[in-house]
């Protein structure tokens, strides 16, 4: 039974589109007041889950409880207290940002005076009277956030909230998320950006092929994560892989971009790099290690991690975090 401390509970969700099973018995439970991350490779079912939670798509089977109330296909959003967006937020291009929000405020039954306030929160006040048709994707993203905040949600569902934003804009959005969380709002963030999820979430669900591959708190994840992984570029990847076979505690896997992913703790990694040098294999670049979440993601899904513009630049050779 869901209790007041559970904001989202979904059990055995199944959704198929033709022959494709987007969700295959998916389970999730998010406690109230938490920021929960939803990560997974493309096609894992993240967006389908959000669409179901927003009543945009009906599940084939399974049960959902949102804010203590049963989900219904006719419009769970009628349960006041939910907000957010799925994929990139879209608005009427022939209307100004303010007019768009006023219409949405009307549809939500909230006071239009809130429009100025939320525009201010997402720093769009100076562009409020411009038509949305001329907005960049980052500005639309901000406007989407403003539209979500109009409802003063207790549960906020955000799909890639920082996509399209410049680094400072992304930092502001994440700060806003933290602020909302501090005020008691439960937030579910679907993201490809592991650094972002790692930095802002209290708990996480890793999705794979429509199922929950891992679910738990970030503390637990850090303790269970496999050895940190590095990305390495050498003068001879074939020999580098061969060397890894004889070096204890080192695992090397080529990635689709032509790099080598090296999983090892610090000491075995040092020994491995020294061994490569002795054998005449130059290490031309060694990037920062993946976060615990990235390592876990890689281990659970085997998928390559998307790297975003907001991500820090790679460190120079030999400099690891």
């Amino acid at each position: 039974m869901p209790d007041d401390r559970t904001a989202i509970e979904a059990r055995s969700l199944v959704k198929s589109f033709g022959d494709v099973r987007a969700l295959d018995g998916f389970d999730i439970k998010v406690k109230s007041g938490q920021v929960h991350g939803l990560v997974g490779p493309n096609g894992a079912g993240k967006t389908t889950l959000l669409r179901i939670l927003f009543s945009l798509v009906s599940p084939d089977s399974g049960s959902i409880t949102l804010l203590g109330r049963d989900w219904n296909a006719a419009g769970s959003i009628r349960m006041h207290g939910m907000g957010g967006f799925v994929e990139d937020p879209r608005f009427y291009p022939y209307l100004t940002a303010r007019r768009n929000l006023e219409f949405l405020a009307d549809l939500d039954g909230v006071d239009r005076r809130l429009v100025d306030e939320v525009l201010d929160l997402v720093r769009l006040t100076d562009r409020a009277d411009r038509k949305v048709g001329g907005f960049s994707s980052g500005m639309r993203q901000r406007l989407g956030l403003a539209a979500s905040l109009l409802r003063s949600p207790r549960l906020l569902l955000l799909d890639e909230p920082t996509v399209g934003l410049d680094p400072s804009g992304a930092r502001e959005v994440l700060a806003l998320v933290r602020g909302l969380s501090a005020e008691g709002t439960t937030i579910l963030i679907s993201s490809h950006n592991m650094t972002e999820v790692d930095g802002v979430c209290d708990s996480v669900t890793v999705m794979r092929e429509g199922r929950s591959a891992w679910h738990g708190s970030m503390e637990r994840l850090r303790s269970e994560a496999p050895a940190p992984a590095h990305r390495m570029w050498t003068s001879d990847d074939v020999r580098a892989k061969d060397v890894a076979l004889v070096e204890p505690g080192v695992s090397v896997v080529p990635d689709p971009e032509g790099w080598l992913t090296v999983s090892a703790d610090r000491e075995p990694l040092d020994a491995y790099v020294i061994a490569l040098g002795r054998l005449g294999v130059a290490v031309r670049r060694l990037e920062m290690p993946m976060t615990a979440l990235e390592s876990m993601f890689l281990a659970l899904t085997g998928a390559e991690i998307d790297r975003f513009a907001t991500r820090d630049q790679p460190d120079e050779i030999g400099v690891t975090r």
Partner: peptide, 8 residues
């Protein structure tokens, strides 16, 4: 997705 995720 904007319209259907409101209170109507």
């Amino acid at each position: 997705k904007t319209m259907l995720t409101r209170s109507c």
